[in-house]
């Protein structure tokens, strides 16, 4: 059971190999990748930042809670920090269990709780040159981002 913040690119094959377990009939993996749009705006790149000490502590609690609730054999979640380009792997979750239902449910729970609870922040850089921290809008509940206009050239 692992939760880790990484400033280095993630290698999903190497991560998956760490979860090899002959008791496991099911292995479920989630890859979160950098998408080229959000809220109708073209996205150019993402920047992730974490309060690493607390992020790894809270993340470990999430994995432990899920492992206590569901019959899984192994679970790991690794989240990138730093600047990521389109298509890059931002977060990886892998879960093994004897049968598939627990692995699917645990994988979903780990990524959902991670997004909701772990102190990691995401700044979107838009094709227009503007950027914004996601969920940090203060203009109103409907706005998803606080947009900083591009710097004058």
């Amino acid at each position: 059971m692992t939760f880790r913040i990484s400033s280095e690119p993630l290698d999903p094959n190497a991560l998956a190999a760490q979860l090899l377990d002959l008791r496991a009939g099911a292995y479920v993996e989630f890859q979160g990748r950098v998408r080229n749009h959000n809220e109708g705006q073209p996205v150019h790149a993402l920047e992730y930042e974490a309060y690493t000490a607390l992020a790894e502590k809270e993340g470990a609690r999430i994995v432990a809670e899920v492992a206590a609730r569901l019959p899984i054999l192994g679970a790991a979640c690794i989240h990138r920090v730093g600047r990521l380009e389109l298509g890059e792997l931002a977060v990886w979750v892998g879960v093994t269990s004897a049968h598939r239902a627990a692995a699917f449910e645990a994988c979903r729970a780990i990524i959902d709780e991670t997004k909701a609870r772990v102190p990691i922040w995401k700044k979107e850089h838009y094709a227009s040159g503007a950027s914004g921290w996601i969920n940090c809008a203060t203009a109103g509940p409907a706005a998803a981002t606080r947009i900083t206009p591009p710097a004058p050239r």
Partner: peptide, 10 residues
């Protein structure tokens, strides 16, 4: 102390 803005992992 760390003040934690709304999180946005994933």
């Amino acid at each position: 102390l760390v003040f934690i803005p709304p999180v946005a992992g994933g």
